[in-house]
């Protein structure tokens, strides 16, 4: 379980807090999708969870273990693939397996590549891969050390719609295998509803949680179904309200009402 308690982050130089008193618990194996307008602190939240930045106050725990620095049980996929260009695809995937013997590293990396559908690409250079393939390698790299929690920071935003949809399927298939806790930040509402068990809508200045919307649709989700559409509308409505100061948090109409507004 990933727990955020009273989490606040103020960057040097002042201004509104990037993140203010965020309380959230993401259950083990849950997929939480975080959406929100720009400056709502969603990327800050992920960076704190990855241990790349320090919280100003409050804390983050993974299964009761405080996160103050990059944690072995937490993996992250960034907005860009961030592959190391001087390593082959296989060595990139094996980058986080430094503590293991060479043969085991290689085997784990090849397994991870196979799971993202890139078996046989191990000896290529990253530059020889397309953007979608590179992002799959980045996912394989994050999953290779078998983290308990996987963070994704707008991982598919630079890709075209078809590639994105196929990566959603890939990601869900991977998640099915080991059921890690997943926190995905996105600005794409459809992506959030496709993936998330729960959608966390955040609000800017200061960054805080505006509303949590559970999505109880069975997987695989049909993007054409009325229920999918209703969930999407509900998230959009919450997003709209979150950017409009006249609506304080938690005042969105309850689920039943929002379905037909």
């Amino acid at each position: 379980m990933l727990t955020f308690a009273n989490l606040t982050k103020t960057y040097a130089g002042g201004g509104a807090a990037a993140l203010s008193q965020v309380d959230l618990a993401v259950q083990a194996g849950e997929i939480a999708a975080i959406v929100g307008g720009s400056g709502c602190g969603k990327t800050t939240l992920l960076r704190l969870t990855a241990g790349l930045d320090q919280a100003s106050s409050g804390f983050i725990e993974i299964d009761g273990d405080r996160v103050t620095a990059p944690h072995p049980a937490i993996g992250i996929v960034f907005q860009e693939p961030r592959l190391l260009p001087w390593l082959t695809v296989r060595d990139n995937v094996a980058f986080g397996l430094g503590d293991q013997p060479r043969a085991a590293r290689r085997q784990r990396a090849d397994e991870a590549l196979e799971r993202v559908g890139l078996a046989g690409y191990g000896d290529r250079w990253p530059r020889e891969l397309s953007g979608g393939q590179q992002q799959r390698v980045a996912i394989a790299r994050a999953l290779a050390p078998r983290p308990k929690a996987l963070l994704l920071d707008e991982p598919f935003s630079a890709l075209d719609a078809f590639t994105r949809a196929s990566l959603h399927d890939h990601l869900l298939a991977l998640w099915e295998e080991s059921r890690p806790t997943v926190v995905i930040v996105t600005h794409d509402v459809e992506e959030a509803v496709t993936l998330g068990d729960r959608i966390i809508v955040m609000q800017p200045r200061p960054g805080r949680i505006y509303e949590e919307i559970p999505v109880d649709l069975p997987r695989p989700r049909d993007r054409m179904s009325p229920n999918f559409d209703a969930a999407k509308r509900r998230v959009l409505k919450a997003l709209d309200n979150s950017l409009n100061p006249q609506h304080p948090p938690g005042q969105t109409a309850p689920a039943g009402g929002a379905l037909w507004w």
Binding site: A50, G51, L52, A69, P70, P72, G75, I76, F78, E80, R82, L84, W86, L87, F95, G96, G98, P145
Partner: peptide, 27 residues
């Protein structure tokens, strides 16, 4: 900086960061 962060996420020490990220990057 983004590549250095990859090294940090995988908890490389100073020496490992130098040999596995910084040196190859400046080659």
């Amino acid at each position: 900086r983004k590549l250095v962060e990859v090294g940090r996420v995988f908890r490389l020490g100073r020496l490992q960061m130098a040999t596995r990220v910084l040196l190859p990057a400046v080659l």
